[in-house]
Design a protein around this nucleic acid. Structure first.
Length: 404
RNA sequence: GGAGGGGUUCCCGAGCGGUCAAAGGGAACAGACUGUAAAUCUGUCGGCGGACGCCUUCGGAGGUUCAAAUCCUCCCCACUCCA
C-alpha cells in the first residue's frame, strides 16, 4: 500500500485541498489504482435538489472538487434529485416542500446545470435523473429498500434526533431521503460521492446500500460547509448571506468585501481554488501580524472570486467600480435607469415606480433620514419634483439614473 | 381512540375584550463613526394620506359585542402524554 500511496501522492494532495474528510483515504487510493489498471475513469457523484435553481458559491465547494476529479480524468455524475426534491433534505432546516410540476423541475435543472458548468468540464459530466430508476419502482421494491435500515440508525442521525427531541414535525417520508439518495449510488455505481459534511450520514448510507446490493462501496469526500458572508451561519439562501453564481460581478465583489475580517482565511481556502496552500499561509501570517490592512487581502480574494466565475475582465471592472463607490464615494458607471413618464414626477412616485423603494412610506422615511440625494445634493423635501435628467442616490448603494 | 396545551406582523416571541399596527429580541434599512467590514451609538421598520386620520393584518370560516389578536362555534395545521 505504501507504494500506491506514493504513486498517487499528487492526486491525493489535490483531492485533499479544501477537503474536510475522506472516508476512507485508503479506499480512494485503491480506486485510483484500479481505475488506472483498467483504464476506466471513476464515477464521481453529486446530487442536486431541483426545488430551486439559485446556486451559491457554498454549493460549489464540492462541485469544484468534482472538477478536480475531472481534471484527473474521471467522470462527474450529477444526479437530478427529482424524487428527493419532493421530500426536502432533512439535513437542512427546510420545511415541507411545495410540490413542483415536472416542467418546473426540468426548468430548474437546466438553470442549475448552467451554473455548475461555470466550474465543471461539460465533456466529462453525466447528468442523470432519479426518475430513471425510481420512476418504475413498485411498492415491493420500495419496501425492500426501506427494510435495509432501522429506525435506530436514523434516530442516531443528529437532524432526525434533534427534531424529534425538540418536538418538531418529522414526516415519515423524510426518512426516505437518505434511502433514496443512497440508492442513487447503487443506480449509477458511484465510486465517490461528494458533498458537504452535513451530507455525511446520507453519503455513508450510500455505502451501506451499495454493500447490500453487492457493489463496491463509494468513498465519501466531504467538503467543509462554507460560512455565509455574515460570518455567523452557513451560507444559505434563506439566511440571505450568500454569494450567488448569478450575482453580478459587482455584487460578488461587494458581498465578498463585506465579509468579516476573521472569515478571510476561510474564504481564501474554501471559496475559491485560486490560492495555493503556501499563499494562504502567508496571508494568514500577515493578517495575524496586523501589519497590513485586511482590506487589501480581501480585495485580492474578491477579485479572485469574480474572476473564477466571470473572468478577469469583469473582476477588474467590479474592483474599479467598488473602489469608486465605496472608497471614493463616487457614483457607479452603470445603474438602473428610469425614464420620466411626464415632464415632472414627485420623488416618491418616481422611486417607487422605478422599483428602488417598495412604498411611498419608505421613500418618505428615507428622505427624513437624510438618505436621498439628487445629483449629490441631499434633499429634505418629500414633495421634491424631478423634472430633468439626474442621478438619484438612496442610502449607500442604491442608485437611479433618471432620463428625461 | 382518549386527554392537553399551541398557531401573532420577515423570524423568534409577548399580548388574552377597548389605551393594539400590536411589548421585547433578531434580521433588514438609514444616519454617525470606520480600513471594505465588524463593533458601537441614534433612528426607522404593514399600506395610504404632509401631523389629528383612514385602510389591511394576529391559522381559516362564521358568530357574540358599541368594540375582538383577545369571547363563542365549526374547520384546518403541527405538537405533547396515554393506548
Amino acid at each position: 500500500m505504501y507504494e500506491e500511496s506514493m504513486k498517487f501522492e499528487k492526486e491525493m494532495k489535490l483531492i485533499w485541498k479544501g477537503t474536510e474528510e475522506i472516508i476512507t483515504e485508503e479506499e480512494l487510493i485503491k480506486k485510483f489504482l484500479k481505475a488506472e489498471d483498467k483504464n476506466k475513469p471513476l464515477r464521481i457523484k453529486y446530487g442536486i435538489d431541483p426545488t430551486g435553481y439559485d446556486v451559491h458559491i457554498g454549493h460549489l465547494v464540492p462541485i469544484r472538487k468534482m472538477r478536480d476529479f475531472q481534471d484527473l480524468g474521471h467522470t462527474g455524475v450529477i444526479i437530478i434529485g427529482d424524487f428527493t426534491a419532493q421530500i426536502g433534505d432533512p439535513s437542512g432546516k427546510d420545511e415541507t416542500r411545495p410540490h413542483l410540476t415536472a416542467e418546473q423541475v426540468k426548468n430548474n435543472s437546466e438553470k442549475y446545470m448552467d451554473q455548475l458548468y461555470t466550474v465543471l468540464d461539460k465533456d466529462k459530466t453525466e447528468v442523470r435523473w432519479q426518475t430513471e430508476w425510481f420512476g418504475n419502482m413498485t411498492m415491493a421494491d420500495v419496501l425492500e429498500l426501506m427494510g435495509k435500515f432501522t429506525l435506530a440508525q436514523f434516530m442516531a442521525h443528529e437532524t432526525f434526533r434533534s427534531r424529534y427531541e425538540k418536538g418538531l414535525p418529522l414526516g415519515m417520508h423524510e426518512m426516505m431521503y437518505p434511502i433514496l439518495q443512497s440508492y442513487d449510488s447503487v443506480a449509477i455505481e458511484a465510486d465517490v460521492e461528494l458533498g458537504a459534511t452535513e451530507q455525511k450520514f446520507n453519503i455513508l448510507a450510500g455505502r451501506d446500500m451499495q454493500r447490500f446490493f453487492g457493489l463496491p462501496e463509494q468513498v465519501a469526500v466531504l467538503s467543509p460547509i462554507l460560512m455565509g458572508t455574515d460570518g455567523k451561519e452557513k451560507m444559505s439562501k434563506s439566511l440571505n448571506n450568500y454569494i450567488a453564481v448569478f450575482d453580478t460581478p459587482k455584487d460578488k465583489y461587494g458581498k465578498t468585501m463585506s465579509i468579516p475580517d476573521d472569515l478571510i482565511v476561510n474564504y481564501l481556502t474554501y471559496a475559491t481554488s485560486s490560492f495555493s496552500d503556501s499563499e494562504i499561509k502567508n496571508y494568514e501570517k500577515t493578517l495575524n501580524s496586523g501589519s497590513i490592512n485586511p482590506k487589501l487581502i480581501k480585495e485580492k480574494l474578491a477579485w479572485e472570486i469574480v474572476r473564477t466565475y466571470d473572468g478577469e475582465k469583469y473582476a477588474n471592472l467590479a474592483q474599479a467600480e467598488f473602489n469608486k463607490i465605496f472608497a471614493k464615494k463616487e457614483i457607479p458607471d452603470e445603474m438602473p435607469e428610469f425614464k420620466l413618464k411626464t415632464t415632472k414626477m414627485g420623488i416618491t412616485e418616481l422611486l417607487v415606480s422605478a422599483g428602488i423603494c417598495t412604498s411611498n412610506g419608505e421613500v418618505k422615511r428615507l428622505i427624513k433620514q437624510n438618505a436621498v440625494s439628487i445629483d449629490d445634493k441631499k434633499i429634505d423635501d418629500i414633495f421634491f419634483e424631478v423634472d430633468k435628467g439626474s442621478v438619484i442616490k438612496v442610502g449607500k448603494r442604491r442608485f437611479l439614473k433618471v432620463l428625461k
